[in-house]
């Protein structure tokens, strides 16, 4: 009798447990959490529209689900708490998969592989500075975006440097452009994008780390995670990822 009750309760919970996938379809909108900007993955154009590689992928995702896409913009340092407290459904914001973050959220399989690199000011360094030179430089100021793997890499790889933490990637890059910081440690695709856009900035191209980017979801909904994994695998094999990489000039694996 007891065993029967336990099984009955288990079945009842499984049946009544609705996946977020159904919530999204019932609501008619997929809510994507991102921070202000990380071009060419996501950012805002002159008209205020969200654009970029991940924005296009998210739109495709919503199209398949048959819903609208909504972008919820939060500060990077608050993005995980915002996901946990249900401000949006997924973090699709160029997030590096780390085991520490995976204690708080679930990650999908990676959709891009990147690395941390150095963005520098051409007025400050006439030739691309190597890590081995920078590492022992006296009074090196490094700008990073608060809470990114760039910040963590900078603290680990440049223990003698002064590290300043800015709220957005663009603000951190601005410190280098105006000479308030000597270098910025940042994701390689962003460094390449900025080097192309601004003549005073350049990327060393030297990869200091290797990192996988994945989509993060709240813990406890494996159904939804499974669907996202399927979507990523499909986007890769169907050529959509390659096509979008070409479109946005994303140079990554």
């Amino acid at each position: 009798m007891k065993r029967f009750l336990v099984i009955a309760i288990l079945i009842a919970t499984v049946l009544t447990f609705a996946s977020l996938l159904e919530d999204i379809q019932a609501r008619g909108a997929l809510r994507i959490g991102q921070d202000q900007g990380y071009m060419p993955l996501y950012g805002t154009d002159e008209k205020g529209e969200r654009v970029g590689f991940e924005v296009d992928l998210a739109k495709k995702m919503a199209e398949i689900l048959g819903v609208k896409v909504e972008f919820v913009i939060v500060n990077w340092d608050g993005i995980i708490p915002a996901l946990i407290s249900g401000k949006f459904d997924i973090i699709f914001s160029g997030m590096t998969i780390t085991p520490e973050r995976a204690l708080k959220v679930n990650f999908t399989i990676p959709y891009l592989t990147i690395g941390q690199t150095v963005l520098y000011n051409v007025k400050k360094f006439s030739s691309p500075p190597k890590y081995s030179e920078l590492k022992d430089m006296d009074k090196l100021t490094i700008s990073v975006q608060l809470g990114t793997t760039g910040e963590f890499a900078a603290r680990r790889l440049f223990p003698n440097a002064k590290i300043i933490t800015l709220e957005t990637m663009d603000e951190a890059a601005f410190q280098v452009a105006t000479g308030r910081a000597d270098i910025m440690v940042v994701d390689s695709i962003y460094a390449q994008y900025m080097a192309k856009k601004y003549p005073q900035l350049a990327s060393t191209g030297e990869l200091l780390t290797k990192e996988d980017l994945g989509i993060a979801v709240k813990k406890g909904d494996l159904e939804f995670l499974q669907w996202l994994n399927t979507f990523i695998r499909w986007a890769k094999t169907s050529g959509l990822v390659e096509e979008l990489k070409e479109k946005w000039g994303v140079e990554a694996e």
Partner: peptide, 15 residues
């Protein structure tokens, strides 16, 4: 405030 935000992101315990 900035230090609190830094610790929050480093430990992933913002709250």
């Amino acid at each position: 405030t900035m230090m609190g935000r830094q610790v929050g992101t480093r430990t992933l315990a913002s709250f």
